[in-house]
Amino acid sequence: MTRQPKDLNGTLMMSRRGILLGGATLFAGSIAASLCPTLALAAVDAGTQGQFMKLSNLLIQHQLNPAVGARIVDMASGEYKNLAQMLDAIIAIAEKKNAAQVEDFFADIPDGELKDFAHWVISAWYSGCSSEKRNAAVFTYEEALTFRTTSDVVTIPSYGLSGPNLWTRPNVPLSAPMPRF
C-alpha cells in the first residue's frame, strides 16, 4: 500500500489511490517501489541533507518528502564535488532577499554552475529522475511533482484514481484551481 508523506493537515495518511489499489500483488509492488531499488543510498552527512532540504524548500513551495530528498542529495553528492558550497551559496542568496518563494530570489542566482544546479534540483523533484536519459537515476515515480500538478484530473499511470467505469465527468477547465500539494 502506498503512503503519502503528509496530508494538508500534517497527518500521516493512506493515499486514496493506495486504498483503491488493494490486492496482495500491488501491495507487494508498492512496497517495492517505495524502497526504490535502483538506488542504494550512500552516506550523506545530516548537515548536507538538512541544507539540501532547506534549499529544496526555497526552490519549490510544495510539500517535499525528505526520503526522496535523501535519494536526490545522495546522487548530487557524487555528481557535484562542491555540493556543500553550492547549497550554502544559493541559500545565502535567498536569505539575503528574505525570500518566501522561489520567484523572490531565483533571478538573483548567477548564471552558470549555481543556476544550472538549481534547475537540476527542481528537475529532480518534478521528474523524479536525474535526467531525461535512459540511464537516469530514479528518485521516485509516484511522488514526482509533475503528477501533483494534475492530480485532480489525471491518473498516475498504474495508480488508478477512480474506480470501475467511474471516469466520466465534466472536463476540468484550465482556470480550475491548481491542486494543493
Binding site: 520567484e103 527542481i122 521528474s127 500538478t149 494534475t150 476540468v172 484550465l174
Partner: peptide
C-alpha cells in the same frame, strides 16, 4: 514534463506550464 522544465520556468509558472501542457 522535460519540455516544460527546459523552458527554465520555476514556481507557479512551472506548475501551470506542466498542467497546461498535460491538459
Amino acid at each position: 514534463t522535460f519540455a516544460a522544465l527546459k523552458k527554465g520556468l520555476v514556481g507557479k509558472a512551472l506548475d501551470e506550464e506542466i498542467r497546461r501542457m498535460t491538459a
